[in-house]
Amino acid sequence: MIEIIFWGRGGMGAVTAGKILSDAAILSENYPHVSTFPSFGTERRGAPILAFCRISDEPIWVRSHIQKADYAIVLDETVFGDNVITRIKDGGALILNTFKCPEDIRKEYGIDPAKITVVTADLTQIAFDLNLTNQENQPIVNTSVLGVLAQSSLKINIGDATQAIINMFGEGQKTDLNIKAAEQAAKTAQVDEVKV
């Protein structure tokens, strides 16, 4: 079972990202069992929120929150900190939406390179570059992050991810932009050189 936690803020689509990821997992045929849920509650726009995603080749019976994740995905750097780092398993990966490079993040937060792979991608900039924003002109970053995930050791490729995005939003111009963002994110994501 692979456990993934999304960190974001209400309205960024962290929960939707989890849903798309679980759909992509099913499409990949490598993970027939999925379970994705938000941290639940009186969600408000802007409030820090968590979304949990479990994917597995065996039935999933765990219903509690994920305590330690294989992949920690942070859509908004302002919610990132030790609260995130302490919830990553040894050998896990951190995927952070930031303009900074992995090395800086590692130094800033003192992350042990032997334990956690740090990946950064400037998803916000990609969204602005592609004009991929919502009505309030906020950048959409929840779909592009799936492109980054497709680069990971997860057995989900970019094709599954884009198909899942289409399943979620239907065909259309905006969907194409989302896919473009995902592809661009996959290309520009920075992985620290220390391999685990």
Binding site: G18, S22, I26, H33, S35, T36, P38, I60
Partner: peptide, 12 residues
């Protein structure tokens, strides 16, 4: 079925 735990959890 459990609120949130099933009602808002995505599964296949």
């Amino acid at each position: 079925y459990d609120g949130y735990i099933l009602s808002h959890t995505t599964m296949s």
